[in-house]
Design a protein around this nucleic acid. Structure first.
Lengths: 163, 163
DNA sequence: ATAGGATAGTCGTTTAAACGAATATAACAG
DNA sequence: CTGTTATATTCGTTTAAACGACTATCCTAT
């Protein structure tokens, strides 16, 4: 039986490999779900990335976190926390401070307003994610998570720089 | 047992729901794999989207395809085929023509140079995708594809416009 | 025929991503 | 101490995405 994606993309020739079919399915599914999340967030002036930063900072509490820490904890990689934080600061959801001990590091902290916003949006996102995936059922959901985590455990690329 | 992602993101509190954990895992895995694909393509002046267009046009052969058809077949949605095609045309990999029957539609066609490029890159992408996912094994790969397709079958959002 | 509406692309503009160079501070070896 | 290297962040610039408004062409029902 040909897969669903072959039909969705009106492909005249099936995929060259099962691995490629999986990767393209992954891209398409991620794009689909991410789009719905972005749609939910955009009326509040947030992108998935900037919302992610707020959620990370809420987890850190009043201590805040250095930019570099926030960067590492982002679900999707973003090399430029500076400008992401700029926008969040302009909206009053985040404040910036230099760390006294090491004046190189900039600590980001969520404001009460930012905290309120995250709490309110969390409810909506919970609902959205439930609608997006609860039809899989508990067993499939567990398996799905396991496979997604396993998919990230591929061999790193071997280059002259990374021998 | 806590999931891998909780550790990767250094989360102090576990996920609020299994659905959310799955969605975030999906985003992270897609980002990770997409980044490797982009890295492979970028030396050739291609993005995942523009490569996708070339692959679609190669499938269409000498007949070519209208922009709207190309748009629908893209793995990830891109509303602006015009400028995507602009770049591909500037590199000499596609040509544009008006359709004689209906002068509104613009047909995109791959050039022999474009075709050669796609064929060469297909080999590299095959290798990359195998490295990315073959460690899952055939059975898991089948299951993974099935779950990804199933994940796109969520209920559409109900709004006043979409009752 | 022809006005109204649908369809196919294009283009302007705002906003964000990608990449690399630059700055500031810290750590450390001699 | 002092030059060197590493780290943390910022900033300039190029490139692409997002969103709408706009143009041209076609279809269809009067």
């Amino acid at each position: 039986m040909p897969g669903l994606l072959v039909h969705e993309l009106r492909m005249s020739v099936p995929f060259a490999s099962r691995e490629m079919e999986a990767v393209l399915n992954l891209m398409r599914t991620a794009d689909y779900l991410r789009r719905e999340v972005a749609e939910l967030l955009s009326p509040h002036g947030l992108s998935p990335s900037s919302y992610n930063v707020l959620r990370i900072l809420r987890g850190a509490g009043t201590a805040g976190l250095p930019c570099s820490e926030v960067s590492q904890r982002l679900v999707t990689h973003d090399p430029d926390i500076t400008r992401l934080a700029d926008r969040l600061m302009a909206s009053g959801w985040v404040v910036r401070d230099r760390q006294p001990g090491d004046r190189r590091v900039v600590v980001l902290r969520i404001t009460p307003e930012g905290s309120d916003l995250v709490v309110r949006l969390d409810v909506d996102l919970q609902d959205l994610h439930r609608r997006q995936l609860s039809h899989l059922g508990q067993t499939n959901l567990d398996m799905f998570i396991r496979l997604l985590e396993q998919a990230r455990q591929s061999e790193p690329v071997t280059t002259p720089e990374n021998p």
